[in-house]
Design a protein around this nucleic acid. Structure first.
Lengths: 214, 214
DNA sequence: AAACTGCCAACTGTCGACAGTCAACAACGC
DNA sequence: GCGTTGTTGACTGTCGACAGTTGGCAGTTT
């Protein structure tokens, strides 16, 4: 059928399902039917079940015994709790990045910031993609694999919460400034300042998400 | 067979496998045979596979395509990286606990510390169980569900690394003092001091594990 | 009319069997 | 004797079918 495919069906199913969830194609609260979805993806229920369980372990799905899986519906309390976790992880990452960063790391961070600002001034709005790229560049500089892994998982859940939300330009402007301040603290090898800036940045983003949610 | 069991076979398999891994009954590096283990647990391969994937998502197993799962072998670099994650999470938890704790929380923490000290002075060594209980009591006071969840997962991985290691009494003595200092900071509602104490505590524990490992 | 009880359809949980892949072993050539 | 290649065995990946449970619907009772 598919001879030179280097990924198992379960692996493909994970990617496909993740896409369906993150794009909001499967709305929050909707129950996922195994047989139906398996047919839609062209695979059997076995691999699909593994994919469902995997995404559940990432927090993108919620399992209910004998009642299947559904995309979680998040309230303000969830957003706050999730950002407490994100703050813990990313502040630590910022600290580590400030103490471990190489010149190449700083250059990369500057490049991402520059591109973000350019895109923002050109199109009145910079894509979320660049925000993710910035945080990932920071993680790279932190060189802490387990923290990096966890931040990626948390960011995914934030993306899930963001689906159906749009950013206001003023908030974007503030984020750009935060990013610049963060790069400056990292470049200056000042861990505690980097942590503080990150904390304020995430507090702002969290507050903005809470108002957009209400 | 087992009529009034309120847990799915996969759920039971998760618990059983977790026990086998954490107790070291399945040594690090050993490959896990699905058919053999399924027979041993008295279930089919389907639920067992789900259990294996679940534990892999918790970091207790490593999956290799077409070659099954095995318990990860951890070196010093892994220990350091894991403790960077643990420090990020538990320092944040200590901060939150210090700012949110109720009198009941403080009482609970005091009780755990007292029992630890009593057991230590009586038997020259206090069980790891009480150390876990202390950190869990602190998490309860922090009231941050996602951080709590992640700390539990990390603690599990630490237990995995600890299997086959024994504590030296002097290190235990230091831990007892750290715990007391932590309770005092939390009781005084001093988040930054709580975070600092936790950081020092975990640095000590990490260093001790690294020396025991070599 | 409202509440309760028994049935029914749909779905999840589980199983056994088949197919594909990888690694070790053996035979062969150099 | 050593490296290479074909073969074989064991194991994982996948599938289709069966069994158990859940929630809803119809029928009945008060």
């Amino acid at each position: 059928m598919t001879p030179p495919l280097h990924l198992s069906l379960a692996g493909q199913a994970v990617d496909a399902l993740r896409e369906l969830v993150l794009t909001g194609e499967i709305p929050a609260g909707t129950r996922v039917n195994e047989v139906e979805l398996a047919a839609r993806l062209g695979i059997s229920r076995g691999p699909l079940r593994e994919a469902i369980r995997h995404l559940a372990s990432e927090g993108l799905l919620v399992l209910v015994p004998h009642r299947g899986a559904h995309v979680p519906e998040a309230g303000p309390a969830d957003v706050k709790a999730l950002f407490e976790l994100r703050t813990a992880l990313e502040c630590a990452a910022a600290e580590l990045a400030a103490s471990r960063r190489t010149d190449a790391d700083v250059a990369r961070l500057h490049a991402v910031c520059a591109e973000s600002r350019r895109t923002y001034q050109a199109g009145e709005r910079f894509p979320y993609r660049l925000d993710l790229a910035f945080h990932r560049a920071l993680l790279e500089a932190a060189r802490s694999p387990y923290i990096t892994e966890q931040v990626h998982l948390v960011q995914q859940r934030v993306v899930l919460l963001r689906s159906g939300l749009q950013d206001h330009p003023p908030h974007q402007r503030a984020s750009l400034d935060d990013h610049d301040a963060l790069v400056s603290a990292v470049a200056a090898a000042d861990p505690s300042r980097a942590s503080d800036v990150m904390r304020r940045h995430l507090a702002r983003v969290c507050a903005q998400m809470l108002t957009s949610l209400a």
